[in-house]
């Protein structure tokens, strides 16, 4: 995967049919179009062949996902400025669009706020009549995102990218109050977004996606960290639970992780959806 790079503004996206047999590395403006590709192959395309956007024709709301992808290739900064807008109404104009879809948001500066955030999201889900199993999944991904933002992001060494693996169990972590993280939930008729933004921009994108792939390849038990710090499978849980994952890093400034889950679908149909994946490095 490349580091930060500038896209030629004159370039438009190029759509390439991809499969488990795809072997060629591509430029950042290329969209991989797949059909029924399993998650580990989606991750292979991202980590080994440099596809920044992989979307699946039989995945969740393919047409909407493609529209978002086209916009993000042309203007990747939009994901950081208006993530809800970029995903839910990519071709609409106006900053108020974010508010139209937003159903809960919370800034946080401390690890002790996790319960507050999850309770807020739980209340929002109850109001929308979300099924218990979907609510459990939303809570799970929100929990993992919050924990990553609070316990990982502030402690990654900028030079070495080494994660200090701060203990989750006996440390209270507090951010600089002037640079809060934020979590938000948004939804349209068919999708719910759970997202987390931290103000550090320290996520190693290649490492993040490679770690998820390693868990698919070797299993959760084999990749779990039984020492201090995180368990090492939270990002896998987020991707495994989601129908679409967006990961954006503006180095030193912000990391946003956003996932989409389908509304009004049975668990079975949700589990059968092949996944979309997007990563943006600025």
């Amino acid at each position: 995967m490349n580091g930060a790079r500038k896209l030629d503004p004159k370039l438009r996206s190029e759509q390439i049919e991809v499969s488990a047999q795809s072997k060629d590395r591509v430029a950042p403006h290329c969209i991989g179009l797949a059909n029924g590709l399993p998650p580990e192959q989606v991750l292979r395309l991202a980590t080994e062949l440099n596809y920044t956007h992989i979307i699946q024709k039989d995945g969740l709301d393919y047409a909407k996902e493609l529209a978002t992808t086209e916009v993000l290739i042309e203007s990747p900064a939009r994901f950081f400025d208006f993530p809800v807008h970029a995903v839910f109404a990519p071709t609409d104009q106006g900053p108020a669009i974010d508010q139209k879809f937003l159903i809960a948001k919370k800034e946080f500066t401390s690890s002790v706020q996790k319960r507050e955030v999850l309770d807020l999201f739980g209340g929002a889900m109850n109001q929308r009549g979300v099924s218990q199993t979907l609510a459990n999944d939303i809570t799970l991904v929100a929990d993992e995102m919050f924990t990553n933002a609070v316990f990982n992001a502030p402690f990654v060494d900028k030079a070495t990218h080494h994660n200090a693996n701060v203990s989750r169990t006996d440390v209270e972590v507090n951010f600089d109050k002037s640079r809060p993280g934020r979590m938000f939930m948004a939804a349209d008729d068919t999708r719910v977004m759970v997202a987390c933004e931290d103000p550090y921009g320290s996520l190693n994108l290649n490492g993040y996606l490679s770690k998820i792939k390693a868990t698919y390849d070797r299993g959760a038990a084999a990749t779990m960290n039984f020492g201090s710090g995180g368990a090492g499978i939270g990002s896998y849980i987020i991707f495994n639970t989601s129908a679409s994952l967006f990961v954006g890093v503006k180095a030193g400034r912000a990391t946003i992780i956003a996932c989409l889950l389908p509304l009004a679908l049975s668990n079975k149909k949700r589990s059968l959806l092949p996944k979309h994946l997007h990563w943006i490095q600025l």
Binding site: N136, T169, M224, G232, I237
Partner: peptide, 13 residues
């Protein structure tokens, strides 16, 4: 009511 990745690890231990 809920279990997260750290909970999974601590449960196994």
């Amino acid at each position: 009511t809920a279990i997260n990745s750290v909970g999974i690890r601590e449960w196994i231990k």
